[in-house]
Amino acid sequence: MKSDTPSFELRGVGQARAGRTVLEDVSAAIPRHVMTVLSGPSGGGKTSLLRLLNRLDDPVRGDILYDDRPIAEYTVTELRRRIALVFQTPVMFPGTVSDNLAVAAELAGVQDGQFDELAREVMLLAELDPSLLERPGGELSVGQKQRVNLARALMTSPEVLLLDEPTSALDPETAGALMKTIGSLSENGQLTIIVATHRVAETEQYAHHALVLRDGRLVENRDSQATTENERNR
């Protein structure tokens, strides 16, 4: 797939939850192999949009294309391995950090012989000390859990990484460090990253593209520098 074709294309996407409209007529192209920041006030529809891209939900209206194909045409489990989603609140599976990575490795079909090397690699990518691999997940700090969730998502070697408010539960220093890690992931030029956040300033130096959602509507869709200036001035 050429890098100038968008990763995702949204065409008139609408979504409702519990009878309430949460996204309305959203149309946008999300560029490939760069970081896109998805911002806007709480309840604006950021999480709902990310869930549609990973197909945890389906839209009530409109079409979503990934690599020029409607996402409903992909096998859903296959699609989710290619488009990984990291939730706002980190979720640890039972067992150690290694057990958590092993779940993703099993789903991605990683060979047993390759697991140790890959686990170490994703731990380093998520800027976690590989010595934590044998630590029970429940003993980690929230920041470490969020990084383990990031490492676990990377185990499936995704093409797209969706991050839902990854820093919202973290103090500013830890949040800044995590965003730096995410920024460095986008700089290798292989990964499409979409970060939903209300802390736009944290992402400005890494994001290439920006979308702003308010009350379920897309109110801005432009290059990130311009958008951050605009957001700041509000």
Partner: peptide, 12 residues
């Protein structure tokens, strides 16, 4: 949350 985390990774 745990079930959705599995699904989001591509689990059945």
């Amino acid at each position: 949350d745990e079930i959705e985390a599995y699904l989001a990774l591509g689990a059945s």
